[in-house]
């Protein structure tokens, strides 16, 4: 087990390379032919109408699709050059490096402290380092100032926005290189959303962030690169239409369908 100090000193990493990735639920191919590079220490937004495979693609990156059963992922997904679907890769280890924040805040029914310490405890971080790690994670998730001195309080006493930032802190506590966020602000009010977005802006200096969002303004505000996905009919699988700098995608997309979507003509 690597110690906290060593992981803190980890060099900038967390780049994904996806080559011809397809996902099938049983016999039905839901997503096919995705080629995508996710740059380290940046925010990549996945946008597109409902059912276009954004969340499916996101779940490929920490192999949470494995948990659904009956899901086949083909093609190649590399994290810093290593194939994450290789035989010798343990998905449990992978998920320490690739954290996830869900659509609905899902704190565990325990104290704030125990929520943040949950991941590190599993991975053998010693008690003596825990207090510091919990504080650091809460600071990075911009929640520390609101909960210091109340760490023994039950997580359910927090507001929805605070709970979501607690979930971010909880995911940060395993020192991931990548953080996957599946519409993390869709269940929150505008002020909480603003706080989450600020947190994301702070985090991207040392964590790669991949965020699924339905909110186009949000994608434009927070992301460095944007990938637009689409499923044109139920008979054909979803695919990646285009990916590029967020500014380019929003001002001068090369594909007509991207332009139609971002200008609000469908979706």
């Amino acid at each position: 087990m690597v110690s906290t100090a060593e992981t803190l000193a980890r060099p900038k990493c967390g780049a994904f390379d996806l080559t011809d990735v397809s996902v099938a639920y049983g016999d039905e191919v839901a997503l096919s032919g995705v080629d995508l590079r996710i740059e380290p220490a940046s925010v990549t937004a996945l946008i597109g109408p409902s059912g276009c495979g954004k969340s499916t693609l996101l779940r490929c990156l920490n192999r949470m699709n494995d948990e659904l059963g009956n899901v086949t992922v083909s093609g190649k997904i590399q994290l810093d050059g290593d194939d994450i679907y290789a035989r010798d890769v343990d998905p449990v280890e992978l998920r320490m490096r690739v954290g996830q924040v869900f659509q609905k805040p899902n704190p565990f029914p325990m104290s704030i402290y125990d929520n943040v310490a949950y991941g590190p405890r599993t991975h053998g971080v010693p008690k003596s380092e825990m207090d510091l790690l919990v504080e650091d994670s809460l600071r990075r998730a911009a929640l520390w100032d609101e909960v210091r001195g109340h760490l023994k309080k039950h997580a359910f006493e927090l507001s929805g926005g605070q709970q979501q930032r607690l979930c971010i802190a909880r995911a940060l506590a395993t020192r991931p290189e990548v953080m996957l966020m599946d519409e993390p602000a869709s269940a929150l009010d505008p002020i909480s959303t603003q706080q989450i977005e600020d947190t994301i802006a702070e985090l991207k200096s040392d964590v790669t962030i991949v965020i699924v969002t339905h909110n186009m303004q949000q994608a434009a505000r927070i992301s460095d690169r944007t990938a637009f996905m689409l499923r044109e009919s139920m008979e054909r699988p979803a695919f990646l239409v285009e990916v590029g700098d967020t500014r380019t995608i929003f001002t001068n997309p090369s594909d007509k369908r991207t332009e139609a979507y971002i200008t609000g003509r469908f979706g």
């Binding site: 920490n62 949470m64 948990e67 449990v92 280890e93 992978l94 998920r95 320490m96 954290g99 996830q100 869900f102 609905k104 899902n106 565990f108 029914p109 949950y118 991941g119 599993t122 991975h123 979930c167 909880r170 995911a171 395993t174």
Partner: peptide, 20 residues
């Protein structure tokens, strides 16, 4: 969601069962 949350933090099924 609790199950998913625990698995996504790098816990095995057994750890998730026992701790959550």
């Amino acid at each position: 969601e609790l199950r998913q949350g625990s698995l996504a933090l790098g816990n095995t099924h057994w750890q998730t069962t026992r701790k959550v």
